[in-house]
């Protein structure tokens, strides 16, 4: 090969400019290794380009330290194997967290169910209590009425004493003649047997004439055992007999529980 012609062709300038293909580059490298003149020529061309490019260099310090810092960071973020295990660890953490979340969710669901049923129980209790309060209020009202009645100056109190059938029985009649009202306090009467009911009679003594005043219905259910009845009669005495439910036209005197005479005042 004619080295001089090769150099004169301008191919080495193009080589330094990076204008050649990879194959052409390798051929140039081969020639350069065989012919020192070619190698020298390449270096001289490159040197002139280096000088020329240097003229445009930015007028600021070009510190290798800055590059070195960057490649050091590059190494730590790429090479250190800790990062691998770190990602695994975080993925385990992820799984653990989601399992805990599920367990927590189930637990909370159960807790919620329990609380719901507890609320139902408490709600029922509350309703019961409200009913009790209502009953107590009603009972109180009744008692107040009763008290007012008893204290009324127009009231006549007639104690009824136990008779042969039931000597320990007793009752009281509060009679407001003006308002024609009777209040029977039946506290001292035993509970009537099934199918039977107490009946209150107004009596005239001479001759003995009984008039039914009313029945003591729902005897067992009424805690107060106070019964309101109306009495328009000019009664001289009151008696209470045990009669078949629904009451009778005439009193069964064999079943006369209590009897009392209105004191003449």
């Amino acid at each position: 090969m004619n080295v001089e012609e090769y150099i004169e062709s301008g191919i080495l300038e193009l080589y330094v400019a990076g204008q050649l293909s990879e194959d052409e580059n390798l051929k140039v490298v081969k020639h350069a290794s065989l012919y020192p003149d070619v190698q020298k020529e390449i270096e001289a061309i490159e040197a002139s380009i280096l000088v020329l490019s240097k003229t445009a260099a930015p007028k600021v310090p070009l510190d290798f330290a800055k590059v070195y810092d960057k490649i050091k960071n590059l190494n730590t973020s790429k090479v250190v194997p800790l990062k691998e295990s770190k990602t695994n660890w975080t993925s385990y953490m992820g799984w653990a967290a989601s399992i805990l979340l599920i367990i927590g969710g189930v637990y909370l669901f159960n807790q919620n169910e329990k609380l719901q049923s507890q609320i139902e129980v408490v709600e029922n209790e509350r309703i019961n209590l409200e009913e009790q309060i209502n009953e107590a209020k009603i009972s109180l009202t009744k008692s107040e009425e009763l008290l007012a009645t008893i204290r009324d100056k127009n009231i006549t109190v007639i104690p009824l004493g136990g008779q042969e059938v039931s000597p320990t029985s007793y009752a009281k009649v509060y009679w407001n003649k003006k308002e024609e009202k009777l209040y029977i306090d039946a506290q001292g009467l035993p509970e009537p047997p099934d199918g039977m009911v107490y009946q209150v009679w107004s009596l005239k003594l001479n001759p003995l004439t009984p008039t039914s005043v009313g029945l003591l219905e729902d005897f067992i259910e009424d805690d107060n055992r106070i019964f309101n009845l109306t009495n328009a009669n000019t009664s001289e005495a009151f008696g209470i007999t045990l009669e078949p439910s629904g009451g009778s036209k005439f009193p069964n005197l064999e079943q006369l529980y209590t009897l009392g005479v209105v004191s003449s005042s």
Binding site: I49, S53, K54, T55, A56, A57, P58, V67
Partner: peptide
């Protein structure tokens, strides 16, 4: 080569600071 490489970059961006920054990268 830093001055030369940064110089080549500067012929394109024509801004000393920008050229130096690109040059590092």
């Amino acid at each position: 080569y830093a001055e030369n490489i940064c110089g080549v970059i500067n012929t394109i961006v024509k801004d000393d600071n920008l050229a130096e920054e690109i040059c590092q990268d």
